[in-house]
Design a protein around this nucleic acid. Structure first.
Length: 566
RNA sequence: CGGGACGUGGCGCAGUUAGGUAGCGCGCAUCGUUCGGGACGAUGAGGUCGCCGGUUCAAAUCCGGCCGUCCCGACCA
């Protein structure tokens, strides 16, 4: 492509800097433009990168026996009602009606639709199957942000496996893990595989592929010693034993005027340290008021509560609801003697004695609380936020905590969708078997953004060769010098003839502008053609990653580039 | 959903406090000079000041409502 004819609208109002977020680089480089919050247009350069990412994914999916399909983006509501997700998914599902007022859905994933196709499977001889597509997904995110990282409309490669038994599902799951590792290697992304919450997707087991970077929106805990890795939503740690000493035989109520927070109670004369307090939270879970207990110095991870309760609707109770049910305001709440409400307690409270908690009377607390003796716990669970530095649950080494981008997520689903939509095959005995499903997703544009986030410097983007929009830019320095232009044109023709994706910078711009633009948009190799080098029959070859420049004889350029290509 | 900020040529912004001819930088067009690391000069084009309503002789500016965008938090498949 000739740059002079290409649509590459770079923005030069301010210099690129090392702090700029990835989406700003993509905008400045002329890759993307925003249409509205969470919806982006991909310009020619951006689309070239996207197609390359898609092709890499396609090749690796095909390599594990995946078969590509393309399903509709718009679905009838009935199919979502059949699995219950019409109600479960809530506001994140885009819904619309057609002219006959039939309810429709814009697909945010395709378990239902692939399962519908799978109802045509009739024999165990047809299994296993791996079907996939690269499709637009729609998700009405509460707050789209960070450019391509969190959007409402995006391309996803989603695949679905159908197997006869758990061993088959394991094979499909591991095949995907293998394919994904290959994909990330080709994208030059260092990923960490972490245990994750399955959320509303359901199922038994799920693994997220995370790219560590501060730009990420997920919180990951990782053990540098044994490799234990988990999303905060699924995290665990070893608890240091706490000596509670001798407790009272009965809890003792005492006045705490104006004390509303854990911190205030800790600082009060006769109070208690945060780890000696019980924090009482009130949640409304599917319409039911539930008490959630944590150690005073621990924070709740709502997703954990969501997961263990299987809740579809979960929110903190309003203060009026709290007062009506408990008879006191937040700040003086406790679970001692409470039998009307379900009580879910974090495991860190097991066996604890001599604890302090609210008395359910304003401005009163209880000390000497023995959790097992005094509180009727309906359910024990791991609910707490695990913080970096806590001992690894496997080996006790202090955990590292960092931010990461979730670039893929793979799930073992089980038989939910098969059952709900009536998927079944006959086995060798003529008995009906319900295939076990897995589902596996990888976001195309989010991976682009993750690559930019991890491949950039103060000059702009540094695309890996595998997904760069062009491999080489031939920069012609003097467009009014016939010999220089001729040499550039010839190189351009030769490179194209050799199958190289090449951009010819034939713009009538000053050299500095051309260099800066080429660096900003991140073309891996630059061949600079100018009269100075040409006098010796040479051009300059510059690597974008290091900005190292070496002289190369004119007739050796094509060979050098071809050698560098994968 | 809670908190905060912002909407003014293509992009980035000033002007709003105190109502009175809509400005600056970049980019864009033409010409000239220049040109191996984001050139310079000259001349131009381009804006219903987010939208609707109100106050006023007069509104980018004051008032009311709405819409949009961004940031923090919550949520998130």
């Amino acid at each position: 492509m000739r740059w002079s004819q290409a649509y590459i609208p770079t923005l030069r109002d301010d210099p690129a800097d090392a702090e700029a977020p990835s989406h700003k680089l993509l905008v400045r480089g002329g890759f993307i433009r925003q249409l509205m919050a969470g919806h982006y247009s991909l310009l020619p350069l951006g689309q070239r990168v996207r197609l390359k990412v898609m092709q890499i994914i396609r090749e690796e999916m095909d390599a594990i026996g995946g078969q590509e399909c393309l399903l509709p983006a718009m679905h009838p509501a009935e199919i979502w009602r059949a699995t219950g997700r019409w109600d479960i998914v809530g506001d994140e599902l885009f819904r619309l009606q057609d002219r006959r007022e039939a309810d429709l859905v814009l697909g945010f994933t395709h378990e239902e639709i692939f399962a519908t196709l799978a109802t045509e499977l009739t024999s165990y001889r047809q299994l296993p199957q791996i079907w996939y597509q690269i499709q637009v997904k729609f998700r009405d995110e509460p707050r789209p942000k960070s450019g391509l990282l969190r959007v409402r409309e995006f391309s996803m490669k989603d695949s679905y496996s159908f197997d006869l038994d758990a061993a088959g599902l394991d094979r499909a799951f591991e095949a995907h893990r293998h394919a994904y590792r290959n994909i990330f290697a080709r994208l030059d992304l260092d990923t960490l595989e972490v245990a994750a919450s399955s959320g509303a997707m359901g199922g038994s087991d799920s693994v997220e592929f995370m790219v560590p970077t501060d730009a990420g929106e997920d919180d990951v805990l990782h053990c540098p010693h044994c490799g234990y890795s988990a999303n905060q939503e699924k995290s665990d740690s070893r608890l240091e034993p706490i000596d509670d000493g001798e407790g009272l035989t009965v809890p003792e109520e005492f006045p705490t005027p104006g004390i509303r927070t854990i911190q205030a109670l800790a600082e009060m004369e006769g109070g208690a340290a945060p780890e000696r307090q019980i924090k009482t939270l009130v949640y409304v879970i599917d319409g039911e008021l539930v008490l959630v207990l944590l150690r005073g110095d621990h924070a709740l991870v709502e997703q954990k509560l969501r997961d263990i309760t299987g809740a579809t609707d979960l929110r903190p109770a309003h203060s009026e609801e709290v007062r009506e049910a408990m008879g006191a305001d937040p700040g003086s709440l406790g679970a001692v003697g409470v039998t009307d409400q379900r009580v879910i307690a974090d495991e860190a409270l097991t066996g604890r004695t001599a604890m302090t908690t609210g008395a359910n009377v304003d401005d009163r607390h209880l000390r000497g609380v023995d959790v097992d003796r005094d509180i009727s716990v309906s359910q024990w669970a791991n609910l707490r936020h695990v913080t970096g530095g806590e001992p690894c649950v496997e080996c006790g080494t202090p955990l590292e905590e960092f931010r990461a981008i979730e670039v893929a997520h793979i799930f073992k689903l089980g038989t939910k969708y098969s059952v709900d939509l009536g998927v079944g095959v006959l086995d060798e005995n003529g008995k009906t078997q319900v295939p076990i499903m897995g589902s596996y997703g990888i976001g195309v544009e989010r991976n682009m953004a993750a690559v930019v986030e991890t491949h950039r410097d103060e000059h702009g983007i540094v695309w890996p060769l595998s997904i760069a929009p062009y491999a080489v830019v031939v920069t012609v320095l003097k467009m009014d010098d016939e010999a220089t232009v001729a040499a550039g044109e010839q190189l351009y023709d030769e490179l194209r003839a050799a199958g190289v994706e090449v951009l010819l910078d034939d713009r009538n711009e000053r050299p500095g502008v051309k260099f800066k633009d080429a660096e900003l948009i991140g073309i891996p190799f630059r061949v600079t053609v100018g009269p100075r080098g040409l006098a010796d029959g040479k051009v300059e070859f510059t690597y974008r990653s290091s900005l190292e420049t070496v002289p190369v004889a004119l007739d050796e350029v094509v060979g050098k580039v071809v050698d560098l290509l994968p």
